[in-house]
Measured scan of single mutants.
Amino acid sequence: MASQGTKRSYEQMETDGERQNATEIRASVGKMIDGIGRFYIQMCTELKLSDYEGRLIQNSLTIERMVLSAFDERRNKYLEEHPSAGKDPKKTGGPIYKRVDRKWMRELVLYDKEEIRRIWRQANNGDDATAGLTHMMIWHSNLNDTTYQRTRALVRTGMDPRMCSLMQGSTLPRRSGAAGAAVKGVGTMVMELIRMIKRGINDRNFWRGENGRKTRSAYERMCNILKGKFQTAAQRAMMDQVRESRNPGNAEIEDLIFLARSALILRGSVAHKSCLPACVYGPAVASGYDFEKEGYSLVGIDPFKLLQNSQVYSLIRPNENPAHKSQLVWMACNSAAFEDLRVLSFIRGTKVSPRGKLSTRGVQIASNENMDAMESSTLELRSRYWAIRTRSGGNTNQQRASAGQISVQPAFSVQRNLPFDKPTIMAAFTGNTEGRTSDMRAEIIRMMEGAKPEEMSFQGRGVFELSDERAANPIVPSFDMSNEGSYFFGDNAEEYDN
């Protein structure tokens, strides 16, 4: 993207840094990872977990959730003011799984939030270390993106479920800051804005008074975040219109849905970061690795190297396929839920299948599930090659597409044709070009129609051997075009429920 120079890199967003050079960025990201790792080690000690239990991804998720809940100030305040039966607002906890007599047992633990905050700050040299908290939120978000298709949420806001490739980060909490905003897809931002506008339509006082002023500035800020994701002048001009509207209503909703559809071809720039579970960072720190000293990046080879040398386990339900569970977590670790499966298959070195073909449910185990038949197995999170994460949407291309997802959002900077089903997408653009945004709409449609099938995206960008740390010898991959490109292809993934 041309304006790259004016933006802070995501590592800076990730670490609240002012302008830093590459070495400083690597050190501050490393410091953040160190903090998460030290916190995780301490929690495993508190909970008396064995090494194996500490490497269980379900335990990692519970521990991450506990610290996120302990620092969720708004919710904590709300819980104190609106006490609900049987919930102690000062405590947080969740299921911890232990191996007892050759069987997995679930144990519900409860801790004072104050105590968890103390352990977290102690692991982070006394700081609140917001960057580390956001990092864990993005890992949870990436896992949700890989596990669930947001059909219901899309339909509720009037969008087409086939636009799911635009929904990265749709389950990120509001408090995820600049680093969170960077990884949100165009569809996620559109959905947040539509929800806001709908509230304004239904509630006369939404934009009024002292609160209304705050609401208005939040609305304009979200519009600017979305505008910054678009790469064409016409899309940005249309966002200006939406932002400046005196009284946002149905016309703005129409414009936003139009823009979301246009992003299936004229893709937005959305950041991709490899955020790993805390149970990967903990053992690495415990083994003596100093992330701050060595430096770390979320968008280069580092996460690949770390996963190459990590042992992570997962509980497996009786009829689940461990290899499929591994694929789910591998995609989440690489922030690749909406990437082209052919690119992923090449990088991973084994075939990556669409969601609907995987015999696996989510990673988390519900409290009512029976533990008797639970097994555990090693997650295979290694890769054959590594590639640089991208934040450009890439230019655009036609490809055989599917009944489910009709476009992709690249996660890796790797040369390819970008699949999208042009006739299906263009069919949504018939007729409606009147109104105050008509010239911009016409211009956007013209650009979409001009998108050429034979153009290559990320020209000359390749993948790298894991021994090639400096990215000196790019390998331009070859793809098996007979395979499906979309992950949520004609899909039956479970729906995400809060």
Rank of each mutant, 00 (worst) to 15 (best):
E73Y: 03
A403S: 08
F206Y: 13
T437G: 04
D145A: 14
S60D: 07
I41K: 00
N397D: 14
N21E: 09
W120Q: 11
V183W: 09
T146R: 03
K91D: 13
I138R: 06
V408I: 09
P248H: 10
E339T: 13
Y289I: 14
V183L: 06
I119S: 00
C279F: 05
S367H: 01
Y281C: 14
P419E: 09
R175D: 10
M159V: 15
R204S: 09
G93Y: 12
M222F: 15
R175A: 10
L418H: 06
E320K: 07
G177D: 10
R400M: 14
G404H: 09
M426R: 01
M440E: 12
L328H: 04
F420M: 15
S141K: 12
A493F: 05
S297L: 10
K422L: 00
V285Y: 04
G94L: 03
T147P: 13
L56N: 01
E53T: 02
K305V: 05
N250H: 02
I138M: 03
L133E: 09
A387I: 11
I225H: 00
I444D: 09
N205L: 01
M448C: 08
E64Q: 04
P173F: 01
W139E: 08
L143Q: 13
A251N: 10
G54M: 12
R74G: 13
E73L: 15
E254W: 12
F258E: 10
F420R: 12
Q327Y: 13
F489E: 10
M66F: 03
M136E: 07
S3F: 02
T146Y: 12
F291K: 08
A182W: 15
T424K: 04
D497C: 08
R267K: 05
P173A: 00
A411W: 06
M167P: 04
M448P: 03
C164L: 06
K293P: 13
K103T: 14
G200Q: 07
D88R: 00
E320P: 10
R118H: 05
R342H: 07
T146N: 03
N202E: 14
Y111C: 07
E465P: 10
M105R: 01
D88M: 02
V285S: 04
R441V: 07
G462S: 03
I138F: 12
A271D: 03
M43G: 09
P410I: 09
R416A: 08
R221K: 14
A427W: 04
N334Y: 03
Y52V: 02
S407G: 12
A403T: 01
E192A: 02
S467P: 05
A403I: 03
L143D: 14
A27G: 06
T134C: 02
F489H: 10
I96M: 14
Q241P: 14
L307K: 11
L344W: 10
A278K: 09
G185I: 10
L172K: 10
A493H: 15
L381G: 03
G282Y: 08
K7T: 03
P303Y: 10
M440A: 15
A403N: 14
Y40E: 10
G394F: 10
R446G: 07
T215Y: 05
E24Y: 13
P410N: 10
P477C: 11
V352L: 02
I33Q: 03
A337L: 03
E64T: 05
G356H: 10
S392G: 08
Y111R: 06
A153V: 14
G404F: 07
D51E: 01
R446H: 04
E244T: 04
S262P: 13
M196N: 14
E443H: 10
F420V: 08
T424N: 02
A387P: 13
E192T: 08
R199H: 05
I63N: 04
R99P: 03
R382N: 00
E254G: 15
A2W: 10
V343A: 01
T62D: 11
T437E: 15
V312P: 03
A260Q: 10
L298Y: 05
R246W: 13
R199V: 09
